[in-house]
Amino acid sequence: MKYLLLIYGAPPAEPPTPEAIEAEMNTYWDYEKAVAEAGVKLGSEALQGTETATTVEVRADGERVVTDGPFAETREILGGYYLLDVPDLDAALDWAARCPGSHNGNRIEVRPIQEFEAP
């Protein structure tokens, strides 16, 4: 079963120091290694900040509306994701708990992937 681990967190009030960035990157490299070795990772990416986000909506009349920023202003923003293939929700929750994205005030939302029958 596939699950998407959505990593949410509040953007830091001040820019992190290079040492802090490196320390965080190292925890992610360890985790990347763990999911790869376990053979459960289908994909993973980190997102740039919401200041780089652009929202697109095509209205009923066909008008394309492009706006600066994320579609909803919230304190916690989506920072990245892991797409995993594991046997069940317990396994997905275990991987979420091991991920640095669920530590230090950040949280992970675990969502099962919708499977469609082949046509």
Partner: peptide
């Protein structure tokens, strides 16, 4: 069913 919560003893 949808999120596949398992039937297992921890």
């Amino acid at each position: 069913r949808a999120a596949r919560i398992p039937f297992r003893v921890p």
